[in-house]
Design a protein around this nucleic acid. Structure first.
Lengths: 138, 138
DNA sequence: CTGCTCACTTGTTAATTGAAAGTGACTAGA
DNA sequence: TCTAGTCACTTTCAATTAACAAGTGAGCAG
């Protein structure tokens, strides 16, 4: 019956490229392996909104701890969701950007946002966020 | 500048109904406060796929630990995303169901799945999952 | 009475998180 | 030159959370 469901267990990873720890071949499970925590998608959100530097990301209202931010940026780079650009030598300063893979998370964030708007009172509307995004395009 | 972005910090929760611990009024952040971990959305996925009992949920290929499953079902019920139905006295047995709020997470799961299909090789397609869902409708 | 299922709960240990402080490379001002 | 401040992290460590294994209680089948 569990096999029939198609959400089958993955026994081995002999064909995989990275040393990934997939719990199954289900796309939802694989996505959550990469994005399933309280902070990762907030970092992606901020990058979509045009934030670029460590300091800007840190300054978000949710107040992400700096060690978690550094760790998440590292993980997201390892997954090719984010890349960094050196914009200044002496001292070295970086700007972070979403790759195409990262930018494709936009619809995920919008669906989360739509759900929140419908079911959690007091959350910002999609229209408000889109206005914000236009306002902040560099 | 952070105020201008609209993703503003929430200072107080004097109007809120539940004793919620919102990090901000951003819908993404609020959603992640409820759903942001590796297991919660997998439970929602299984309920969408028609699984109903504790044992069926436990039997998913990802192998959720029973204490985590019990905890997540408790949390999801507290958030009115899931409700349980007593289908048997002596011994008491329950069936779990998604509320309307929970069923509305479908689009979130589909967007995650579409992202995975595009960017994580070897994940199941939306078509496969939809076929599965039809097959398992009670 | 024995073993079995289901739906959990309870330990115990391992890993992760979060708050705060520290580091290194600079820049600007007295 | 000395002091203070910014930026981008890293380190430390207590506290929370997760994972694994085992146990519990209510029944049922032989």
């Amino acid at each position: 019956m569990s096999g029939k469901l198609g959400v089958m267990a993955i026994s081995d990873d002999n064909t995989g490229s990275a040393p990934c720890h997939r719990r199954s071949i289900c796309g939802v499970a694989c996505s959550l392996d990469l994005l399933g925590d309280k902070w990762t998608l907030l970092v992606v959100r901020d990058l979509l909104l045009g934030k670029r530097t460590f300091g800007e990301l840190q300054a978000s209202p949710e107040g992400i701890p700096t060690n978690i931010l550094a760790d998440r940026l590292k993980r997201l780079q390892a997954e090719d969701i984010v890349y960094k650009e050196l914009y200044q030598e002496r001292p070295r300063r970086y700007r972070y950007h979403l790759s195409a893979k990262g930018a494709d998370l936009g619809p995920v964030l919008f669906s989360l946002l739509r759900w929140a708007n419908k079911h959690i009172p007091g959350t910002m509307s999609v229209a408000e966020v889109q206005a914000m995004m236009e306002e902040n395009r560099s």
